[in-house]
Simulated scan of single mutants.
Amino acid sequence: MQLIPRHDPYLVVGSTGGHTVVALRGELDLVLVRHLRPELDALVRESDALTVDIRGLTFCDATGLGLLAHCAGRMRRRGARWRLVCDQPRILRLIRLAALGDLLDPEAGPPEDPVVQSVPSPAEPGVTRPVS
């Protein structure tokens, strides 16, 4: 996994081969969506496979779900691989109520998943971004 230091407490990105892993932390609401959208759009354009790990989110509203749905839809239209890792009952319920389960296809993501585990938590120093 290639990483570059970055100073964003809400986002950590790592890349290996064509697989990119994004870990999000904090509250995925209108404010954070506006902050993250340009970076996520770039990752969606450039990645052959994108895993978005939202297990570190403390909140997600409809705007946050909209961003995730936008990313998933664009990845699938390109024929790229999309994976959403989420183990939070509240967010999973929101995904179900919004009828986005088929598009987002959330999975628990076992802790031993080496790709997801290789990306450090954004709360730690040395938050990262993929090497271009």
Rank of each mutant, 00 (worst) to 15 (best):
M1T: 12
M1E: 08
M1K: 01
Q2E: 14
L3M: 13
I4M: 10
I4R: 13
R6S: 15
H7Y: 08
H7M: 06
D8A: 15
D8K: 01
D8Q: 14
P9A: 06
Y10I: 00
Y10C: 09
V12A: 15
V13W: 01
G14N: 10
S15T: 11
S15A: 12
T16A: 15
T16M: 13
G18E: 09
H19A: 10
T20K: 01
V21G: 08
L24W: 14
L24A: 13
R25W: 07
G26M: 06
E27W: 07
D29P: 11
D29M: 07
L30P: 02
V31M: 12
V31A: 08
L32H: 08
V33Q: 04
V33S: 08
R34P: 01
H35W: 05
R37Q: 13
R37A: 10
P38K: 00
E39R: 06
E39N: 00
L43T: 12
V44N: 00
V44Q: 00
S47A: 14
T51D: 14
T51K: 00
T51F: 01
T51N: 05
D53R: 03
G56I: 11
T58D: 13
C60V: 09
D61K: 10
D61F: 10
D61I: 12
A62H: 08
A62G: 04
G66V: 07
L67E: 02
H70S: 09
A72P: 12
G73I: 14
R74F: 02
M75H: 04
R76D: 03
R77Q: 11
R77C: 07
R77H: 13
R77D: 12
G79K: 10
R81P: 00
W82D: 02
R83W: 06
R83N: 11
L84I: 04
L84F: 02
L84W: 07
C86P: 10
Q88L: 11
Q88P: 00
P89R: 09
P89K: 09
R90I: 02
I91K: 12
I91F: 04
L92Q: 15
R93A: 13
R93S: 08
R93L: 08
L94A: 15
L94R: 12
I95R: 05
I95E: 01
R96A: 15
L97F: 04
A98S: 15
A98F: 04
A98R: 11
A99Q: 14
L100E: 07
G101T: 05
D102H: 11
D102T: 11
L103A: 07
L104K: 01
L104N: 07
L104H: 03
D105P: 01
D105Q: 04
P106V: 03
P106Q: 06
E107W: 05
G109P: 03
G109N: 03
P111G: 10
E112P: 00
D113S: 09
D113L: 14
P114Q: 06
P114A: 12
V115G: 05
V116M: 08
V116D: 09
V116I: 13
S118E: 13
S118I: 05
V119L: 05
V119A: 15
V119E: 08
P120L: 09
S121H: 12
G126R: 14
V127M: 13
T128R: 15
P130C: 03
V131G: 01
S132E: 10
